[in-house]
């Protein structure tokens, strides 16, 4: 069974994280799509931390013998990996969009320069 101190500390940690996320949403520092993911992660961690019987059962299913809280570590690591992958995707997309914007800007600048030269020649 999970030591009671681990349950308390992990629960407080999860609650603290939920609190921080909630505050960030309240101040509009997090966009909706991200806030939802973070809230979900916080809730899952809180459930794993506070629900001792549930954690025990889950550990049994996963074949984790001896120390059930390692399931919390596993879940945490999984979420971190998923979020990092998600950021890689977002950065790739932003970088593509940034490139396209830079190209369009350069093409427009050239066109504008050409037009102003033409109108100077005409006038």
């Amino acid at each position: 069974m999970t030591p009671i101190s681990v349950t308390i500390i992990a629960s407080l940690g999860a609650l603290g994280m939920l609190g921080v996320v909630f505050e960030l949403i309240r101040r509009r520092h997090l966009r909706e799509r991200y806030s939802l993911i973070w809230l979900l992660i916080g809730v899952v961690l809180l459930v794993l931390a506070a629900w001792r019987r549930g954690l025990n059962t889950l550990a049994g299913w996963m074949g984790v013998k001896g120390y059930p809280p390692s399931v919390i570590f596993a879940a945490l690591l999984f979420f971190v990996l998923i979020m990092l992958l998600h950021y890689s995707i977002v950065i790739s997309r932003l970088s593509d969009q940034n490139t396209t914007l830079a190209q369009r800007l350069a093409l427009l600048e050239e066109e504008q320069l050409r037009r102003s030269e033409e109108s100077r020649e005409d006038g």
């Binding site: 490139t99 830079a102 350069a106 600048e109 050239e110």
Partner: peptide
């Protein structure tokens, strides 16, 4: 004619421009 990219994009994006 000169098309000046605002910062270095690399040869691939430059050629695509």
């Amino acid at each position: 004619r000169v098309i000046s990219l605002p910062f270095n994009l690399g040869i691939g994006a430059a050629m695509q421009t």
